[in-house]
Design a protein around this nucleic acid. Structure first.
Lengths: 199, 199, 199, 199
DNA sequence: CATGAATGAGCTTTCATTCAT
DNA sequence: CATGAATGAAAGCTCATTCAT
């Protein structure tokens, strides 16, 4: 009579997703195999399909989790401080995790968006959320005079997100680049972009 | 005793690579099949292996060709003009090709770099070349007073390359974003970053 | 010490069998899955195995039920009437249900008999029962002068059963065939076969 | 430069089909596995897919071959003779092959027609061909006075085909039935059905 | 009596790669 | 140079069946 315990079900799903995440960032979305994920998650292939309809569903859930996590990290940034400093600390965290395997995952997602409309949609939707959060920061900064009032908050936010993406690419293209130096220059880029009172 | 005509051999290789490029940008590195590439190139699978040792060799050559092409496009930019304008026109070309399938290829490469050291190396090497070319532009700009002298040309170049990568990601994350607006803001980002005389 | 109520147990079995019947006639013996049958019967897979040892047991029970049902329908035919009319009305019912999914089930059973000796035996046993019932009709008809006395009742019965099977096949081979016309001719076939006084 | 030799290709296809036929009549359409067919045909699984798009294509080709063969056998019957005798010899051949595995295949096809529209279509199309061939025989018989002129040739043909199907079912339902006796009665059925001059 | 989590063998299919011609 | 027949391992996925609860 007892039905599925949704709690346990969800926990298991998360466990599988975590295992999949390890496989995906090691081998890529396409390179990772169901068998590998099962081994990593210590379950049988048949059982995995109680939790996910198919591989694409795992990729989808993974992508969703990754972008949600990215958005959440942004939400956690202290909203009191100078928004410029806030955003820079965001960029900074990217620098620190420089060789983080999840960066590869991001590029896998961007590549996958080219072949999978559902992944593309997840990326678009999450991007809209992140962008409006960013834009809110910027608007607040404009109100307090920290951010150039001539910038369109939405478009500036899009540019800043793209700068973060670019920073992640930089870590791959140039792993030996002076981290402090690159960070300094990125910071300069952001500051000069946002700072008001350009003559 | 008839020897291979190296000229023809190279041309064939390029043809195959072009066919592979179409397949890769349509289906991704992993999603594209040797059979598909052969069909696209109008050769037999057996024959393809006269030109490439294995699939990874094609991916490698493809990556090399793509980054070389990117570098070459940079080389073609008129070296006379104001370097800032030059760089902006480079960004602009990214905007115009916004939904170009080759963008997905770039992200495939960046993702692949996570699993394949040889791809990672190609990316690193090509990046070093591009970066020094960019840096040369910047140095010239600094000499002529167009570019802020306090910037380190190498690091600034790395940041600019990352901005271009980010711009490509922007097209995927936000396909409906106002192109002109985003471009304006990107331009502003570059100009403010490079322009001298910040107080 | 609580014993199973055999009444309830049997009813449950019949319910499951009914559900299985729907699945089998939709997807075939091989195409239908235990999971599907469970969903159709609203029970869990584990529970199903309280009622049936394995899938083959379900197929067996199903086959048995189907042939028993066919025999029972025959039993219900009014034994008073002219046996020729009786048999024709039997053929008629086949015509009416022409596209009935249970027809496919019959052919599934006949095919399955080729790979499963136990199914073959069920078919044989049931056929013997039906045949003797048919034969009894014929004998009565011979006594009353409605049926040709030179026919061997048993063999004639076998031929008539095969004619009914054939009529079911006709519905599949030729779904658009004039139903009335085909029925008329089938009726003629039966009448001429059984009618006495051929010169 | 040499292209595929269509002769060899076709021969290989036929070989595979023959192997598949053995597997299918042993295990049924669904019960037979690609691996088993490959082993029977002495080829690798990958290679099989050079000749057939997928398993369904094999089933389709198999069905087509089987019904074409049935039609061809009919064509070979001597067209000179009394059409009734001709048709009876057709029924007779069914009796002789009584336990022929291809009979099971027929019922597999009829069952499969319930789930696969393409199989259903093949059956319909082949049936139309066979039926018109049968009907031509009957018409000729009517012209020569051997066959009852009141019968509609097309419908009578359909009824006769269904009688053959039924005869095949009889072999399965009743393998121990006196073959001669059953045959005698079947012959009687046919003769009385077709013979003219019923009073 | 009843659940559904869990298994693992087996399924169809794909694909990089080799090789005789 | 060029073909495409052939391989076989591995992929994603299904499913009958078992078992702890």
């Amino acid at each position: 009579m007892r039905k599925v315990d949704p709690r346990k079900h969800d926990e298991r799903r998360r466990e599988i997703l975590a295992a999949a995440g390890r496989c995906f960032s090691r081998d890529g979305f396409r390179g990772a195999s169901i068998a590998g994920i099962c081994k990593e998650a210590n379950i049988s292939p048949g059982h995995l399909y109680h939790y996910f309809e198919n591989k694409e569903a795992i990729v989808r859930a993974m992508t969703q989790a990754a972008v949600a996590e990215a958005d959440m990290q942004l939400e956690l940034l202290s909203p009191e401080a100078d928004p410029i400093a806030t955003l820079i600390s965001k960029i900074e965290s990217t620098r620190v995790q420089r060789r983080d395997a999840t960066h590869f995952l991001l590029f896998d997602m961007l590549a996958e968006a080219g072949h999978s409309p559902s992944i593309a949609k997840i990326l678009r939707d999450s991007n809209r959320a992140m962008r409006s959060r960013f834009a809110a920061y910027l608007r607040k900064g404009q109100d307090s005079g920290h951010v150039d009032r001539t910038l369109d908050p939405d478009l500036a936010a899009a540019v800043l997100i793209s700068a973060i993406d670019g920073a992640k690419a930089m870590g791959i293209r140039d792993p030996k680049l002076s981290q402090e130096g690159a960070h300094e220059h990125l910071k300069t880029l952001i500051v000069r972009f946002l700072k008001p009172a350009h003559d």
